[in-house]
């Protein structure tokens, strides 16, 4: 579905991606992990058309994305839930969800407003509130719900757990799992590598703008280097929270 080939891109004059290649197939949940500044967000923004690429290819369902404007990429069904939620705080919760439909273009919706509210009941209860007045977790749900309103074929999530309490992170990740099980293709960028690797089927590790490791999520999670660099300091938490 998504095929990235030897992608190079710069951000603020510094080369942030050095020939990244990556694929996401239909129905997969792929995790992209790496340290702060490894180029994860730049990669997502390159895919979404916000950061221009210098060279390489991004193909979505066989169509070249580079050179397209962000709005047109969104309307193809390639939707990003950006880092820090980026909800439209001056607009109401309801209006935020309605705006999500803009990405539909000529495509038909896959998620109705009712279904989204069923998934995140809090969005129904607060639909007339200013989105800016929601808590961080509620805002994240709104951002995901808003993405669903646009009938995504591929959902890009940038750090959905950032700044959220562990309990809320659990909720968000369980929703992502359910969505994926229901057939939604997801590319998940996370600093919380351990959690990401738990729910993803495959994973890529990005370091200084290059893919240094990739493979099935459990294989990556077992890699010594990955454990040392990305999972090591979370070992205590991991022992409490073993997957079933």
């Amino acid at each position: 579905m998504l095929k990235i080939d030897k992608l190079t891109a710069s951000y603020s004059g510094i080369t942030a991606l050095h020939g990244v290649s990556l694929t996401v197939s239909k129905g997969e949940m792929v995790a992209l992990i790496g340290a702060n500044g490894a180029g994860k967000s730049t990669l997502l923004n390159c895919i979404s058309g916000i950061v221009p690429s210098d060279s390489g290819q991004i193909l979505f369902n066989g169509q070249e994305l580079s050179g397209r404007r962000p709005a047109s990429i969104a309307r193809m069904g390639l939707l990003q839930v950006p880092e820090g939620r980026q909800i439209l705080s001056d607009l109401s919760v309801y209006e935020n969800l309605q705006l999500g439909q803009l990405a539909l273009g000529n495509r038909s919706p896959t998620w109705s407003h009712e279904q989204v509210v069923e998934l995140f009941p809090v969005l129904g209860a607060r639909q007339n509130q200013r989105a800016g007045s929601l808590s961080g977790g509620e805002q994240q749900m709104l951002a995901i719900g808003r993405g669903l309103m646009g009938a995504p074929e591929l959902l890009l999530l940038d750090e959905p757990s950032l700044g959220l309490a562990p309990k809320i992170v659990d909720q968000v990740f369980s929703v992502l799992t359910r969505l994926n099980e229901a057939g939604l293709t997801i590319l998940l960028v996370e600093q919380n590598a351990r959690r990401a690797l738990q729910i993803a089927s495959r994973a890529y590790v990005l370091e200084r703008g290059m893919v240094v490791h990739s493979g099935p999520a459990d294989v990556v999670a077992a890699d010594k280097k990955v454990v040392t660099y990305y999972l090591g300091n979370l070992a205590d938490a991991a022992s409490q929270d073993q997957p079933a």
């Binding site: 979404s48 916000i50 962000p70 709005a71 969104a74 309307r75 939707l79 990003q80 950006p82 980026q86 909800i87 439209l88 705006l99 999500g100 803009l102 990405a103 539909l104 273009g105 808003r146 646009g150």
Partner: peptide
């Protein structure tokens, strides 16, 4: 930016 990502 967020608006752009939504297709605006």
């Amino acid at each position: 930016r967020a608006a752009m990502l939504l297709g605006v």
